[in-house]
Simulated scan of single mutants.
Amino acid sequence: MATVTLPAPLRALAGGNREIPLAGLTVLRALQSVGREYPRLRRHLLTRWGGLRPLWVVFLDGRRLRFPALRRLSPAAHLQLVPSPRGGNWLISYSDFITLLFVFFVVLYSMAATNTAKLKTVVENLARAVAGLKSLEVVSPSISLGGALDKGDPVPIIIAELPPRPPETVDMLTDMAAQLREAGVSGDVSLQANVESTLVAFNDKLLFKPGTAEFEPSAVEALQTMLEFLQNSEKEVRVIGHTDSSATDPAQFATNWELSGARAVTIVRWFVDMGSIQPKRLVAVAQAEFRPLFPNDTEEHMKKNRRSEIIVINPVEKKATMSVGAVGSIEKIPELP
């Protein structure tokens, strides 16, 4: 049976138990069952919305989970809760930086101690061994080893340009997509990333009850994954509500402007109530039915137009404002005194 090991400060709230059996298909549902069994423990593990507090780092069978909420549990799974480092996950980034710095100096040392004659011999032997391979001068035998052992200016080693590594955002989106697929909601979520921003669009049937700004039960699990993605960033987040062209219930919302705005605000307030995202980073926007993905001519198209978008804005360098003058010339707009 799946179990969870509690850190020492929480054991007194669970009757002194170090390990507790779990019941649930996912990590979040299993921890929610623990909260129901031990009410005093619930407020330390879960928020009032039922999501996992960002105070804990979750390990599954010894491996740290980046997005633990929707990870499925095997019958023999073992969870371990570890307090998050003070100030967030800075210790992980710091460790990565120290590792890269160590690798950098190892590379510098290896370049300084390179036996260029042997390296050139290896390259020539490979060129002869592979038919049709062009002879490439990878390194010159006249490389200076620091200036004291050689005469003349050092000859640089030229390394072919490597393809750029995908940005961290793409890596995290890949993990998020895998978690959403495991939870069976990937068809209701679309993920896009480019240089300027990252967009995650949720179909409204996943988040809200029809015609209202009230969350569906599935909303917490879906937004919990998004929250774990956002809490490790300082970028601006825009939450945009969209509807189809259907009329609203006048008793609740006068127009679709109010409905889409209320849904955007509901998501923003949920992120704020979780306590891990600064409110100044969040912007709520209402678009009503005026930014459809498809014409509102069929039920299928209208279903796709009802969505909530969460856009993470990537910072860009500010460029000087320019205006086009005569053909073939560009001039700057004069500054106001």
Rank of each mutant, 00 (worst) to 15 (best):
F290H: 14
G132D: 14
M111Q: 11
A219D: 11
P315S: 09
P154W: 01
V34L: 04
E236Y: 05
E137F: 00
R281W: 05
L45T: 03
R181E: 08
S233H: 08
A76K: 10
E214H: 05
L145G: 14
Q192H: 09
L100W: 06
E228F: 00
A178S: 11
S218Q: 06
R71E: 10
D297A: 14
T266K: 05
V285S: 12
D171F: 08
I310H: 11
A23C: 07
D244T: 06
Y109R: 14
I159Q: 07
S329W: 06
S140R: 04
K120A: 15
S246G: 05
P75W: 05
G62P: 03
G132V: 12
L10F: 03
P164F: 06
T212H: 00
G187L: 01
K151N: 08
V139D: 02
A117C: 04
K332N: 13
S84H: 10
T116N: 11
R71H: 12
I240Y: 04
H78F: 13
N314C: 04
L65M: 13
R86V: 11
P279S: 07
L206C: 09
W49N: 12
V324P: 10
R86S: 11
D244P: 02
V185K: 04
L101T: 15
S260I: 04
E182C: 01
L180D: 08
I277Q: 02
P315F: 05
G211N: 05
L259M: 09
A131N: 02
S74Y: 11
K118G: 00
P279Q: 08
L52Y: 00
L65F: 08
Q192W: 04
W56P: 03
T212F: 01
L46D: 02
L46A: 00
L41K: 07
P83G: 09
A262Q: 01
S323T: 07
A131P: 07
G51S: 15
R128W: 10
V272S: 07
P250F: 06
N203W: 07
S110D: 06
V139Y: 03
S329F: 14
E221L: 03
K303Y: 08
Y94M: 15
V265L: 14
F59Y: 11
F97R: 08
G87H: 09
Q179I: 09
N115F: 10
V58A: 02
A201N: 13
T321A: 14
T26N: 13
F208Q: 13
A326F: 12
L45C: 00
A8V: 12
Y109W: 10
P295M: 12
P141C: 00
Q224V: 02
V185T: 10
K318Q: 13
G24F: 01
S186D: 11
D171M: 11
Y38Q: 00
L149N: 07
L223A: 01
E331S: 13
F215Y: 12
R181D: 06
L207S: 01
G62C: 00
V283S: 04
M302N: 15
W90A: 14
D244G: 13
